[in-house]
Computed example of a mutant assay.
Amino acid sequence: MSRRKAREMAVQALFQLDFNSGVTNDEAINSVFSEREDINESTKLYAKSLVEGTYYNLAAIDEYISELSREWKIDRMAGVDRNIARMAIYEMKYSNERLQPGVAINEAVELAKTFGTEDSSRFINGILGSIVKNKELS
């Protein structure tokens, strides 16, 4: 299983869900799966768990982000950045297999470099670093 691929697919699905209110979790993730070949079942299952877990905990996750990014309202953040941060917070705080903060932040920064703008990786690092610094993960 490739967790990095699963995260990439999950971010793409979360982005779709964020901007298309009529799309279900299953429709979004299946749309992403249909664009890729040779994805093993365990990678698909992990991607799906990331999408469902992030989406289920969205209100609490968005509250964390809003509190820590006082200069930016969550709806003003770039969609990719917002969804990468959401998923990383899910993995650090809510997932059954919680990631160590350093691992989650590194993975999120790499996703931001792939999918975001030139400034996305610094932004993601700052938001997630603030959460860890303020010990908001308990």
Rank of each mutant, 00 (worst) to 15 (best):
G22E: 07
L50K: 09
R82D: 05
I105C: 13
N83G: 02
F115Q: 06
D26R: 08
I65L: 08
D38Y: 08
I61H: 13
I124D: 11
L111G: 00
G116Y: 11
Y90C: 02
D26C: 00
A13L: 02
Y46R: 05
M92E: 06
M9P: 02
A13N: 00
S2I: 00
E37V: 03
N40Q: 09
N96S: 08
A104C: 09
S49C: 03
S34W: 07
N25Q: 12
E97C: 02
S49R: 02
L45C: 00
D26P: 00
E37I: 03
E63T: 04
D26Y: 06
N134I: 06
R86A: 10
G116F: 10
T114H: 10
A59K: 15
G126M: 15
D75Q: 10
A85D: 05
L68S: 08
V132F: 02
E8M: 09
Q100R: 13
N106G: 13
R4H: 07
L17P: 11
G22T: 10
Y55V: 03
A78I: 13
L50S: 05
S21W: 03
E52K: 13
N83E: 15
E97F: 10
L128P: 14
A108D: 06
R98D: 03
I61W: 13
I74H: 06
N106C: 01
E41I: 09
L111W: 04
D119K: 14
S31H: 08
S66C: 00
K73L: 05
R82S: 04
K135R: 15
V132Y: 06
S120Q: 08
V23Q: 00
G53K: 06
Q100M: 14
N125H: 12
D75G: 07
A108G: 09
Y64R: 06
R3N: 12
K5A: 13
Y90K: 01
E136K: 15
S95W: 09
T43W: 04
E52H: 05
Q16N: 11
R4N: 10
L111T: 07
R76D: 15
I39Y: 07
R82T: 00
G102H: 10
L137M: 06
V103F: 10
Q12K: 14
N125C: 08
G116I: 13
A6W: 01
G22M: 00
G79Q: 05
R4W: 09
